[in-house]
Design a protein around this nucleic acid. Structure first.
Lengths: 379, 379
DNA sequence: CCTTTAAACTCGTCCCGCGAGCATATTGTA
DNA sequence: TACAATATGCTCGCGGGACGAGTTTAAAGG
């Protein structure tokens, strides 16, 4: 229809709204300067945003300098909220976030070993309990392969083919936890402000995401980012995913067990933690296993540099520990995996900054992205 | 400065300009409908675009229907041009393109075996000869790894570390030929209109690009897309790039020679063509070599589906022939390489539509993208 | 208390898209 | 050949939003 003019007209307000979201605590004067707006325009925009119950202003902490004090942009007390469902290996949590991204605290519920049929209704109820006029969208983070809004396969949880759109009638995004952690790192973590960032989370296997200009590159149905299922490993080895030689099999607790001559551990994540702890305590075999795994991780990262050319690589989960206990082996792997010409200017490989909160923060960002559109300004 | 309002004000005109570029021959009425503009707005916008010497209108072919005839949007006779430098294995060409993307014909100059020092000045002269007020930008397509505006390494050409910014003082983009072919396929070829497309060109090795919403995903410095240097192959095999086990080594004439028990061919591209021709003529050994190579190509494609989740995969260069002579082997490889859950809904793997013109068309698009910005409307 | 400073507020102006109404070019039919 | 039907282009008044100049306001400093 006529959304052309409507859309254009909302751009200024939308830019300020996104600026306030991306940079919590920013002052109005700073935001106006950043967007190149005159103070008159900023006044007009803030008036409209306040009227739309999106942003409000709070007295800014005194700078000590002269001049009329400005105000910080804060979420409106009646402003939009998103709900975040963070489903991990063993627990699930439902929290909310406002503009600016602050997550409220919420209790974690254990669900270890329970089937999806048992857990999903509980999550649905928890969401229903916080549903209200302010709640506008829901973001879900889940440790498994996601296609659209369905969880295709979560080896850890032993869930498959779970349609998550039953959780709510609100706008909904569902994402893989590793990918969402990458979104979070790019927007509020170790890769913030960087144009192209690659994030990899190692837990059981390795997943992640490429972020370009703050937006995740996850393919048509959001099922991309399964870097762990690139065949960087031994083609004779069969992966539970159905393919062969997956990188996954070389970078986690399963690989450590293999290198230590043990049988496949029931909980590869816990096994990896124990092995890393042993390596930290000086166990030479554990150290060697960690180095071998770190090198395999590094070689894959080096290869991905060739395909994807990021400005920085962030590592989450066990990647942080491997970087710590076997950094040189990991970096040597990166060097070996990258094309030779890259080797004198490799991008930094840094630990993720947001730790275990990454998936939830990423899910909040994904959900908030559904909200912070022109539509929000026309309500 | 104040580019906020300037930018906003240009959006309508810019949208129509891009629409005319993307869809040559579109009528004004159709374009207005597509952008949701009223006929009054369209009149205003076209007035401005004509005044800015960007677009003009030509009588449209009669539709046979009733009603006042509309006009087709055509590039303005004094409108902007971009130059395209297409450097291939053996020849170089300098052409120009206008809005709408039509390339002029131009002679190909042979340069086989000549060093960059000898060729670059000739190209520079050819560009200087066509430089004029209408020429706004230059796009270069070149068969090698590109980082920013320098050619890092072109094994085929035996060029390395060539700074291509000396070619012109105009705005310049430089891109790898395979990646640019992907850009072309996404904008005007077999993947046009598709949100996420993966293109792979097989010549000597394999390169390509992921395209998301019409924009190539090539990393910070445009050096991404080197999918051939992902280690999907035998880790014992050393690649000229300095890494090991590169996919490159399994998908081209070098691989065919290996499978046929021959030594490495001097010209892998020509060897591959001969082998494919022999396979077409019924030579069983050549056929087997083609199938093995096609399977390796397919397995890599399947793996990339996991990482990148495209809606379609386009194949250029020898990929077209492999799809033709060994399609089943290739598709079987795709199935084997993809995660099992994907296997009942694999994206189509289709031949590229633009053939050898792909790189030049992609370079024209890249250069034109530099031109079709707000700046163009303020001149 | 007055000055200096930085920022917010006010208001007239301009630009652009909208929409209604009118003009125009073509086809089909009486 | 005239006229209806149809699709499109053109004109013009309206309204929203950004700009910018001028004014006001709230702090710090002397």
């Amino acid at each position: 229809m006529d959304h052309r003019a409507e859309t254009l007209r909302a751009q200024g307000a939308l830019a300020m709204l996104r600026c306030a979201h991306r940079t919590p605590g920013i002052t109005r004067a700073e935001a106006a300067a950043r967007l190149g707006l005159s103070s008159g325009s900023a006044a007009g925009i803030m008036g409209r945003l306040r009227a739309a119950r999106l942003l409000a202003e709070a007295p800014a902490p005194q700078t000590g300098g002269r001049g009329r004090p400005t105000a910080t942009l804060v979420p409106h007390p009646d402003g939009p909220l998103v709900a975040v469902v963070d489903i991990s290996h063993a627990t699930w949590t439902v929290t909310t976030a406002a503009i600016g991204g602050v997550l409220t605290e919420a209790p974690a519920h254990r669900h270890l070993g329970q089937p999806a049929d048992a857990v999903i209704p509980l999550v649905r109820d928890a969401l229903a309990r916080i549903t209200g006029p302010r709640l506008r969208a829901v973001g879900v983070a889940i440790p498994g392969t996601v296609h659209g809004r369905t969880l295709v396969e979560a080896t850890n949880l032993r869930w498959r083919g779970v349609d998550l759109s039953v959780l709510t009638e609100l706008p909904l995004t569902v994402g893989n936890d590793a990918s969402l952690a990458g979104v979070a790192e790019a927007l509020r973590g170790a890769a913030s402000g960087i144009d192209v960032a690659l994030h990899l989370t190692v837990e059981v296997g390795v997943g992640g995401v490429l972020i370009v200009d703050g937006r995740p590159v996850l393919g048509t149905a959001g099922a991309g980012g399964e870097f762990g299922h690139l065949p960087f490993g031994d083609p004779a080895r069969r992966c539970p995913c159905g393919a062969h030689g997956c990188w996954d099999l070389d970078v986690d607790g399963r690989a450590m067990a293999r290198h230590l001559g043990r049988r496949a551990p029931a909980d590869p994540r816990a096994f990896a933690e124990r092995t890393i702890a042993a390596a930290r305590d000086g166990d030479p075999d554990a150290g060697a296993a960690c180095r071998t795994v770190a090198a395999a991780l590094g070689r894959g990262i080096g290869a991905l540099l060739n395909a994807v050319d990021p400005a920085v690589v962030t590592l989450g989960g066990l990647g942080v520990d491997l970087l710590d206990v076997a950094g040189p082996a990991l970096h040597a792997g990166v060097t070996a995996g990258a094309m030779a010409w890259r080797r004198d200017a490799l991008p930094p490989v840094v630990p993720a900054a947001l730790g275990s909160h990454g998936p939830a923060i990423g899910a909040a960002e994904s959900a908030m992205a559904l909200v912070l559109t022109e539509a929000a300004l026309l309500t």
